[in-house]
Amino acid sequence: MNDDEPLIRWQWIADHTAELADYTGIHLRLGLLPVLFGLIISVPLGILCHRWRWLYPPVLTVSNIMYSVPSLALFMIFVRYTGLTEQTVMIPLTLYTLSVLVPNVVDGLASVPEPVRLAATAMGFGAVRRVIQVELPIAVPVVIAGVRVAAVSSISLVAVGQLIGQGGLGYYITRGLQLDFPTPILTAIVLIMLLALATDALLVLAQRLLTPWSRNKVTSA
């Protein structure tokens, strides 16, 4: 690295705010849409695994194996089918979220106390209605805990997608390395971390709003 080059050139940041904002938006989309898709897949899959327990071990094994494949390799595999597009980044990231989200949906459903399940059945809930109106709402805190992990890891993984030209803020990391220019690298890293923290904070807030019942564990007289 050039010895005269400072770690941060504030002027560069000031000159690139609009561009940085664009890339931040792209980064968020690339990081969070996979979590949403992952949730859309995990909820029904988790319900099935909870209902038929024999299904759970194979599902868990497959999702864990997928998680163990390096992201780079997965991107290269999907490039053959979806080219250098955003989908090529989002599909692997979606698959990664499953190894966190499916177990959390299953655990969340298992956290429903047996008397509650029993009471729901005895009140006359049908099986589907019981899952939607009773079991899933009670599973929300555990599911959101999983979503938080998945979201943070997904946001940081997006940068790797830069290897196929779709990495959101990862763009600045590779650019900085090519130009031997640390400012964009540091800016991108800080922005990615801020995105992860902000997303996590929003999810905590969402949980508080969605589950007012899980707080105030006060036993009154």
Binding site: P113, P115, V116, A119, A120, A122, G124, V134, S214
Partner: peptide, 17 residues
């Protein structure tokens, strides 16, 4: 049938949410 029959269990089994 169950909607026409009241049911009370040991640990109340109230819906926490």
């Amino acid at each position: 049938l169950r909607r026409g029959i009241g049911y009370v269990i040991q640990h109340a089994g109230l819906f926490p949410h």
